[in-house]
Amino acid sequence: MPGPWAFLFDAAACSGCKACQAACKDRHGLAVGVLWRRVYEVAGGSWARERDAWVPDVFAFNLSIGCNHCEAPICVEVCPTGAMRRRPDGLVVVDADTCIGCRYCAWACPYGTPQFDDASGRMTKCTFCADDVDAGRAPACVAACPMRALDFGERAALEARHGLDASFFPLPDPSLTRPGLSIVPHRDVGRAGPRTAAVANREEVGG
């Protein structure tokens, strides 16, 4: 059985266009306010006047995050009903029928993954398009990306190629939940820190 699965995200190539986000919403019929995949814009820097010129010292990059189907998923640990569970193939899924909508997983997840659906009162989340992946196809977000910045593969393989330990701002320490997320860094990630950068599009990613 293939898996456990992980995403490969090329932050250097991501333009922030959100085709991945839209494709996911269409694939799963998501309401406004429910974002199984979110694209965070990270920006910082300043402007200086040099004689008659404006000189920027500005940087920006994007992070497209769905669910990282972590190896030590804290959402599963804290879920009181057992609705959130990790499958043998490594995918973390939530059973809507069991979920009582307490939102504890949303508090705990450092990636903003669990999304509360107002209509049903339950938590929902990225499923890695398990049906498609099981049938040999790519998740919707991966297939959609016009820059080909998203890919997926077996965790071990991605770890060997690009590592699973990206921890630049604003990512949390990967040792906390051991996410299945491999990132090719943008050249500016080294410049981003809690005092030097911010998520610039908070209102677009649920706050």
Partner: peptide
Amino acid sequence: DGDDRPEDTLADPQLRPCTRGRA
């Protein structure tokens, strides 16, 4: 869904719709 042709090459890349097409 977007263009699902199996090949995605430089000579003949998939014609993947943008955000607006997907929405």
